[in-house]
Every structure is written in structure tokens, then in C-alpha cells.
Amino acid sequence: MSAAAGIGLKPAHYRALLTDRPPLGFLEIHTENYMGAGGSPHRYLAALAESYPLSFHGVGMSLGGAGPLNRSHLARWRELVDRYDPTLVSEHVAWSSHDGYALHDLLPIPYTEESLRALCEHIEQMQDVLGRRILIENPSRYLEFSYSDTAEPEFLVEATARTGCGLLLDLNNVFVSTCNQGEDATRYLARIPSHLVEEIHLAGHSINTVDGEEIRIDDHGSPVCDPVWQLYRDTVSRIGRRPTLIEWDTDVPEIEVLLGEAERANEAAAVPSRDSIQGNRYALAP
């Protein structure tokens, strides 16, 4: 897969992408949004899959949940992966449902052996059902649990060691979480081994003031901020280029804005913007 940046696929951009086919490394979807049976989401996704590699990014598996995974949700995932054969498949280190209630948010887990066991069991189950490796993404966090006995980077690395999965490194999440906890993003990143990182996410966040104190909220509703661009340049120079996604999920702007952010990511990583175009199909790196 080319290292040129990709963008999140939004219905508002279906037509523009299909008409103009701008140079992009890949398109990423939230897998849950394509769990309807038919209609325009699938028609456009199938047409765009002719021109772009796809990345399937789940937000509802609840890999960090204490209870069992939702089997019908796994089965729908499997159907979609079989149908579209995405290049990348990922989910979050978080929980989002409990006892049949779906909460639709990526909720934090304590970093303990008990959590690690539940997470790893679920990663393995997802990998078994899909018949392929997945990537797991570091969450954005607004709180920590007092009894966590491992730091997040070590926790993630241990999960990859136990399950063979890879990492989707979300640099905006690293920045948001470390700022919210008064920690240092550079020290966090230094503890992530290069070879585990197979995709990078970039997004914007907002800064809210609560009781006179700043807290950063990962709302994917604005351009990537300068400190996160700096983390990206530092990361690429340390580990090399990786497929990089511009995420923008709230107040989605015109496609040109997303293409501009993707171009900026290419420049930051010094990827020639058209290196991935090979006629009508994008070349996959060996």
C-alpha cells in the first residue's frame, strides 16, 4: 500500500470522489456505517473500491469490554471484509457496550492484567472470525483509573505481543490524552517500537475550559493542530512513512479541505503527492 495520505469517506463526498478521483493513498470507512443491506452506501463504496485501497475502521466492537463480543456484529464485519477485501482493518482499545447496551463512545479501560486478558481474548476472536490480523488504536482519554498498574504504551505493546496484532497510532489521541493527564507526548511515543506501527491517524480536536482548566476533546471537527503536525514529522523521521489518515467526522467540510490536509500530510512526510497513481488503479507496495 502506498504511503500517501488517505481520508475518511463521507457520503457528502461520494460524488466528488467518483467524478474527480483525486490522488489519495486510501479511503477509510467506519465499518458500522456500511452494515445496511444495500443502497447508495454500498453502490458508492463498491465503485470507489475500483480506484482506491480501503481501510475498515470499527468503532463498535468493544474490544475492551468485560463481556463477550457481539456475535452478530462480528458476523456482519466478516461479511463486509469478505465482500470488499480491505487493505487495512482496525478497531479501538476501548469499550463501547455493556450488557447489551450500546454506548457509541470509546470508553476508557483501566490498564491492568484483567483488562489486558479481556482485550487480548477479544482481539484474537476478531482476528479468528475475520481470518486476518487487525490493528488496534490507542484511545483519546479524559480520565485515568487510580488502580491502573501499567502505562498505556506498555499496555498496547503487550497486547500486540500476546495477539500478533499491529498498532494504529493515532497521534492526535496521543496528544489529547497526554495533555489531559499532564504527561509528555514525546516520551509516550518513544516507547512505541517502530515495527508495530502500521497506520497513523491525524485529526483535529477542541479545547474546552472546565473550572478554569483546559481539557482537550477529541471531536474530529477541525484541522490538525500544529503540535500534532510536529509529532507527525518527528514520528515519520523516527519510524518511516506509514499509511496516514486525515480524520474529520464532525461538521465535515468540503472535500477540498480534506484533500488539502492530506496534501499537507504528504508534504510533512515528504511523499510525492502523485506517487501512488498507476492509471486507474493504485499500486500496492510489495
Partner: peptide, 17 residues
């Protein structure tokens, strides 16, 4: 008690979720 809040109080952190 089990959630650690530094500058921003725990209740406010939980309210974000």
C-alpha cells in the same frame, strides 16, 4: 474514587463521556 482526576475534577471528566 477509582477515577483519577488531576486539575479537572472527576465528575467533569466523566461528564465528557
Amino acid at each position: 474514587v477509582e477515577v483519577r482526576g488531576q486539575r479537572v475534577p472527576v465528575e467533569k471528566r466523566l461528564a465528557i463521556y
